[in-house]
Write a protein that binds this DNA or RNA. Structure first.
Length: 348
DNA sequence: TAACCGTGGGT
DNA sequence: TACCCAAGGTT
């Protein structure tokens, strides 16, 4: 397609038919901008040039490489998937849709991407770009995030795809959505499809696609405690049932409402872990972190005397100060560490 | 099936 | 500012 040759972006995973490399790039790019994902793609490919190396790594190393990308379940699912490739496919990464979709973290979109880009299997990709292009071109006002809408768009995408050029078609329609039929201020004036575009002719480009709104975010209040000896610092590994699963952070207490330090020190949760007369230095004002479905208000405190922490939870463990770089942490923590290096490393 | 899962950039 | 969006998937 001429348009693609002129405007398509030259990205490293486009010049390969290796399903492992395609899988790597597709998982990294889920809900992620190319500019943000690109360095991670290179980082992972360098650390794990083949899928068997990925499978052999430990989860901590993978999460550490993933640190900062968000949606950390993608990293854990990749590890599972790599092990599945070794155990169930003899270490040969599957190219077919029916096989790829069995892998953890690989859904319909990613399986279609792997199958079409690696083997030209005629499976249409349906991502945010495709929803937008189809909704506008065919003038479909059905919500793209309702279950019925998803089925309708998936069916339509498969019907209109060029089955003889699956890889090129899939790449092209996504590029078309990203660059030409973009969300805001699309380039309709010079669009080669505008004469047949239902939404363009109806003047409803800006209204499509339709997306149902989710419910509002909830507010959460996190209180983090910096507890260190001369050469160690107490860190806590998060559980699996909540945000930032399996990542490390400082020991913390969550409160139901915005809680001033004095009220915090009087709380049962505080008494469960700390001496009641423990000194507490408040470090920063509350910082707000907006996540997908929650607003997290975080405060940091220093507990100058580590002995005042008398009851450590089983997931609270001391780590050498010089080793905390090797722990996978979420953004709230590693950006705090970045801003407060002198607190953690007195040698600086 | 609707809720949940991060982070960053654009408007 | 507050919201939308970005190469989605799992439970």
């Amino acid at each position: 397609m001429i348009w693609y040759r002129e405007h398509g972006r030259d990205l490293p995973w486009r010049n390969t038919q290796d399903p492992y490399v395609i899988w790597l790039s597709e998982i990294i790019l889920q809900q992620t901008r190319v500019e943000q994902g690109l360095p991670y793609f290179h980082r992972f490919l360098e650390a794990f040039p083949i899928v068997t190396k990925f499978a052999a790594a430990d989860e901590g190393e993978i999460l550490r490489l993933w640190q900062g990308l968000g949606y950390y379940s993608r990293a854990r699912n990749m590890h599972k998937a790599a092990k599945m490739v070794v155990d169930e496919f003899g270490g040969v990464f599957p190219q077919r849709y029916a096989e790829a979709i069995r892998l953890s973290g690989v859904g319909e979109y990613t399986a279609a991407a792997i199958a079409s880009f690696s083997a030209n299997e005629p499976k249409a990709v349906v991502d945010g770009n495709v929803y937008r292009v189809l909704a506008r071109y065919f003038g479909i006002a059905e919500p793209i995030n309702s279950s019925q809408g998803k089925k309708r768009f998936a069916k339509l995408a498969q019907e209109v795809m060029d089955v003889d050029h699956a890889a090129t078609y899939n790449q092209a329609i996504m590029d078309f959505g990203a660059l030409q039929c973009r969300p805001k201020r699309p380039h309709c004036a010079g669009c080669p499809l505008r004469l047949d575009c239902v939404a363009y002719n109806a003047g409803s480009i800006e209204m499509l696609p339709v997306k149902l709104k989710g419910k509002a975010s909830r507010d959460r209040f996190f209180h983090y405690f910096i507890i260190r000896t001369d050469d160690h610092i107490l860190m806590s590994k998060r559980g699996t049932a909540d945000v930032w699963a399996n990542l490390y952070e400082f020991p913390m207490i969550e409160t139901e409402h915005d809680t001033p330090v004095d009220a915090l020190r009087g709380s049962a949760a505080f008494a469960a872990h700390f001496q009641l007369d423990a000194h507490l230095f408040e470090l920063e004002k509350v910082s707000k972190h907006v996540l997908s479905h929650q607003n997290i208000y975080a405060k940091f405190y220093i507990l100058p005397d580590p002995a005042m922490c008398h009851a450590k939870k089983s997931n609270w463990t001391y780590h050498l100060l010089e080793k905390i770089d090797t722990l996978a942490k979420h953004k709230l923590i590693f950006s705090f560490l970045e801003k407060n290096k002198q607190l953690i490393n007195p040698k600086i």
